[in-house]
């Protein structure tokens, strides 16, 4: 995972609420066996409208997306995060995110920034003309107009993002603790420790 410290640039003032993962990437794009190239399918239905924000010259290459409440609700498809990444999105700002989406975004180095609705509304306004700056280290979103919106982020996620850490590698290093748990569970919950015959 690439390290993330700041995200800086134009932000797509999308603003829609309850944007589900079928809107972000429709199911027929899920037939791939790689992570690449899904940007073409991102927001496919909305992009049939020739005036859509995602294909406008104004917002081409914007690294930030601003959305409404409950962004990424619905399915667990990580393809939603891969599609945003392929579109060039490195951060999403919204009043709230679905739990699964924000986890998937984090694991792909996409920063999800939760701000209250009035601050999101202000950013939606600014984004029409000017860039937005996100500073992960100091947990603050700023604009060229003295706006300064602080945000909360889980300290572990922040640490991983700032350092581009691979979570699987970190957990594999806890092998002894996992083995100890398995040994104890074999004694206390033996039926759970027994699995199926393997291939």
């Amino acid at each position: 995972m690439e390290a993330v410290r700041q995200v800086d640039g134009r932000a797509i003032p999308f603003g829609a609420k309850n944007v589900d993962t079928d809107v972000i990437i429709p199911a027929h794009w899920l037939k791939t066996i790689t992570r690449e190239g899904l940007g073409r399918g991102a927001f496919e239905t909305l992009r049939k409208d020739p005036d859509n924000l995602f294909d406008s010259a104004e917002y081409a290459g914007s690294p930030i997306l601003i959305a409404g409440d409950n962004f990424g609700c619905g399915s667990s498809r990580e393809h939603a995060a891969w599609a945003l990444l392929d579109l060039g999105i490195k951060a999403v700002i919204a009043p709230s995110f679905s739990d699964i989406f924000s986890g998937n975004a984090f694991k792909n180095g996409i920063l999800t920034v939760v701000l209250p609705q009035d601050q999101v509304d202000r950013l939606l306004e600014v984004a029409k003309t000017d860039p937005v700056h996100i500073d992960l280290e100091n947990q603050v979103v700023t604009t060229p107009f003295q706006d300064r919106f602080e945000f909360e982020i889980d300290p572990f996620r922040k640490h991983c993002l700032l350092n581009g850490l691979d979570e699987v590698g970190l957990t594999l290093a806890r092998d002894t603790a996992i083995s100890t748990y398995e040994q104890e569970a074999r004694a206390t919950l033996p039926w759970l420790a027994k699995g199926v015959e393997t291939a």
């Binding site: 399915s75 667990s76 498809r77 990580e78 995060a81 739990d99 699964i100 986890g103 998937n104 694991k107 792909n108 889980d154 572990f156 979570e167 699987v168 957990t171 594999l172 806890r174 996992i178 398995e182």
Partner: peptide, 22 residues
């Protein structure tokens, strides 16, 4: 609960997940 593909990889490799209590 449902998980994304990175978490699928994490569970396959470690049989665990890093989670915060809901």
């Amino acid at each position: 609960f449902g998980i994304g593909t990175s978490e699928v990889e994490h569970v396959l490799a470690t049989q665990t997940l890093l989670l915060k209590q809901s």
